[in-house]
Design a protein around this nucleic acid. Structure first.
Length: 419
DNA sequence: TCTGGGGTCCTAGGACCC
DNA sequence: TCTGGGGTCCTAGGACCC
């Protein structure tokens, strides 16, 4: 059996942990730059705030319903996530952390356990130790435990946040209840195509012919179908080193000058290099993109990306910044207001075993230098040591007007309790 | 005025190899 | 009239996830 544990309204719940006064009140969490809504408490959902709502369009609604608005505080969410996962991993030797707020727990060899009881134990311990409410779905396959989890979330009174699908009767009932667009692995496009041919529920979907599903949705769709039929098809994924690393941002203001973009791109490349060194890889290619604001129909539109093959594998921030800046030069055009940009690195090889170039190679002195930079930054704070091409005057900032304290990761933000 | 950021996998088609 | 068979690698595009 698989259990899927998923935190309820995770980011909103994190904000509540240290603000019990907000229990029962509507909360939303905004994306970077306070752009759009990326998490909502149940109360915020109830007043009709949709996922992805642009904050500026919903200010009146926020005021009207006294919604508590937060800027995203990923340091806080990441730390709480670790704590939750730590607790859950004590319940089985095999867990797969699927995202920041959910994990699959394999329950092999638990035949003699009352699994619903067991899940309830997990749930209360996570609540007691972290303050985060979770829901748990249990079933013989991953896809069905997603379904069970949804039921647990949707009917908290009936299920107490734990639901098990352990026979065909329950499975069929659940599939008939689940709308096709809510099935894990069926997104916007597929649900449009499927409902056009009369497939409205997960149950309709599993009635389709295998060949048809494979033709329409590739092998991925077929696996999903089997999993929903109760035939275990999806298993844990091995933890692989990343194949892509991206650092991309929208800007608070539009940028028109090359120099401004150059600073951003250099900083993004340096961040990429830090992440790359963490997984002990070098990259062999890099992509840079810049884009005007696509929502501003009144402004001239331009967006381009460029893919560069590097002459040698590297994870030096100095070199990556240099290559990224050169790439930017090739795509930058004057006369546009740029709103987004990013650096994406690819084609990784292990850092300790990379193919050298006969004529040109990464500067050998960079490796110890980067090591020293990483160490200093680890002690004194992110990006304390930078390249001169980066924002040395700390001009650049993100809009984060409603940022909560980093209660669990910054000493100065630790709460004071008056007894 | 203001609309996020980070990933994955699969397929088809083209270029190339012997 | 008829023009092989078996591969790999790369890229672009399309779908999906949180």
């Amino acid at each position: 059996m698989f259990a899927l544990a998923d935190c309820n309204n995770f980011y909103a719940s994190c904000e509540r942990v240290f603000r019990p006064d907000l229990n029962g009140k509507p909360i939303v969490v905004l994306s970077n730059n306070d752009g759009c809504v990326i998490a909502r408490s149940n109360e915020a959902k109830a007043v009709g705030i949709p996922m992805g709502a642009p904050a500026f369009k919903f200010e009146k609604i926020f005021d009207k319903f006294k919604v508590n608005v937060f800027s995203a505080n990923f340091a806080l969410y990441g730390d709480i996530s670790h704590r939750v996962m730590d607790i859950l991993s004590s319940y089985s030797p095999e867990i797969e952390i699927y995202s920041i707020d959910e994990c699959f727990i394999k329950l092999n060899g638990f035949q003699n356990f009352d699994l619903v009881n067991y899940a309830n134990e997990m749930k209360s311990k996570v609540m007691k130790w972290t303050g985060i409410p979770i829901s748990i779905g249990i079933s013989p396959t991953k896809a069905l435990s997603k379904v069970a989890n949804r039921i647990a979330k949707k009917f908290p009174e009936k299920t107490n946040g734990v639901y098990i699908i352990d026979n065909d009767e329950k499975r069929i009932k659940a599939l008939k209840w689940l709308k096709i667009e809510d099935v894990w692995g069926v997104g916007r496009q597929y649900s449009k195509q499927l409902s056009a041919i009369g497939v409205k529920t997960a149950f309709d979907f599993v009635q389709l012919n295998d060949q048809f599903v494979k033709r329409k949705m590739s092998i991925v769709g077929l696996r999903l179908k089997h999993d929903l039929q109760g035939i275990p098809t999806l298993d844990f994924e091995d933890i692989q080193p990343k194949q892509n690393i991206a650092v991309t941002r929208s800007f608070e203001k539009n940028y028109t000058e090359f120099e401004q973009l150059k600073e951003r791109i250099s900083t993004f490349a340096v961040s990429c290099s830090e992440k790359l060194r963490k997984q002990n890889s070098c990259c062999n290619a890099l992509m840079v993109f810049i884009q005007a604001n696509p929502f501003r129909k009144d402004l001239p539109q331009y967006g381009r990306s460029i893919f560069v093959k590097l002459p040698f594998p590297t994870n030096s921030g100095i070199e990556m910044s240099k290559f990224a800046t050169q790439a930017l030069k090739q795509i930058f055009k004057n006369g546009f207001a740029y709103k987004r940009a990013g650096v994406i690195i690819q084609n990784f090889t292990p850092a300790n075993n990379s193919q050298q170039n006969l004529f040109e190679n990464s500067d050998k002195r960079h490796a110890p230098l980067m090591q020293a930079v990483d160490k200093l930054n680890a002690v004194f704070g992110q990006q304390k040591i930078r390249l001169a091409s980066q924002d040395t005057k700390r001009v650049w900032k993100m809009r984060q007007e409603k940022l909560s304290p980093c209660y669990t990761t910054k000493l100065k933000d630790i709460i004071t309790v008056k007894v």
